[in-house]
Computed example of a mutant assay.
Amino acid sequence: MQRLAIMFRIKPGTEDKVRDLLANYAPPVRVAADGTRMLSTSVFMKDGIVVRMIEIDGNVPALLAHISQDPSIQYVESELDKYVVEEDKRDASTPDGAREFFRRMAMEHITTRISPREEVQA
């Protein structure tokens, strides 16, 4: 499993619209042609900064190409562009545009710590 996170800034006063948009859009098809799976997504927002985290099983470039062509993602990204600050704008309509956006806005992954499973004592 891999985790990716991107961040971008939104215009002041648009938090409610962005919150509603990101909480309520139709989910994309979660499996790419090569079998790469999007396991989960999480969205966080504070003080005009949005962080989107994605967990995947498989090939990151394949997933980015896949989701950039998904109608649900194309819709939410085009709507988000109304609220994103100008310097963080992106062209999510093509795989190259989506890759460039992810490259520019990707956060460095420092560490992931997962608690080991413990057996329940009877």
Rank of each mutant, 00 (worst) to 15 (best):
R3G: 15
L4Y: 03
I6C: 04
M7W: 14
F8C: 01
I10M: 06
I10S: 00
K11V: 05
K11N: 04
P12F: 13
G13E: 05
G13M: 12
G13S: 04
T14C: 06
T14K: 07
T14W: 05
E15N: 14
E15G: 10
D16H: 04
K17V: 14
V18Y: 00
R19S: 00
L22H: 00
L22V: 00
Y25Q: 02
Y25L: 03
A26H: 12
V29F: 06
V29P: 15
R30P: 02
V31T: 12
A32D: 00
A33W: 09
D34C: 13
G35W: 02
T36F: 02
T36W: 01
T36Q: 04
R37T: 07
M38D: 04
L39K: 07
S40T: 13
S40E: 14
S42E: 13
V43D: 03
V43K: 12
M45A: 08
M45C: 14
M45R: 05
M45G: 06
D47T: 10
D47S: 07
D47Q: 11
I49V: 06
I49C: 10
V51I: 12
R52H: 14
R52Q: 05
R52F: 15
M53Y: 15
M53L: 08
I54F: 02
E55L: 05
E55A: 09
I56P: 01
I56Y: 00
D57V: 09
D57K: 08
D57H: 10
G58M: 01
N59A: 06
N59Q: 06
V60D: 06
V60W: 02
V60L: 15
P61N: 05
L63R: 00
L63V: 03
H66E: 07
I67H: 01
I67Y: 01
Q69V: 11
Q69F: 07
D70M: 03
P71A: 08
S72L: 03
Q74V: 05
E79Y: 10
E79D: 06
K82S: 09
K82I: 12
E86W: 10
E86H: 10
E87F: 14
D88F: 04
K89T: 12
K89H: 13
K89E: 08
K89V: 15
R90L: 13
R90F: 11
A92I: 07
A92D: 06
S93L: 13
S93D: 10
D96E: 14
D96A: 11
F101K: 01
F101G: 01
F101P: 00
F102C: 12
M105T: 02
M105L: 04
M105S: 04
A106S: 12
E108H: 09
E108Q: 12
E108G: 15
E108P: 11
T111N: 15
T112L: 09
R113T: 07
R113N: 09
I114Y: 14
S115W: 10
S115I: 12
S115C: 11
S115G: 13
P116V: 07
P116Y: 03
E118N: 13
E119K: 12
E119R: 11
V120G: 08
V120L: 12
A122I: 09
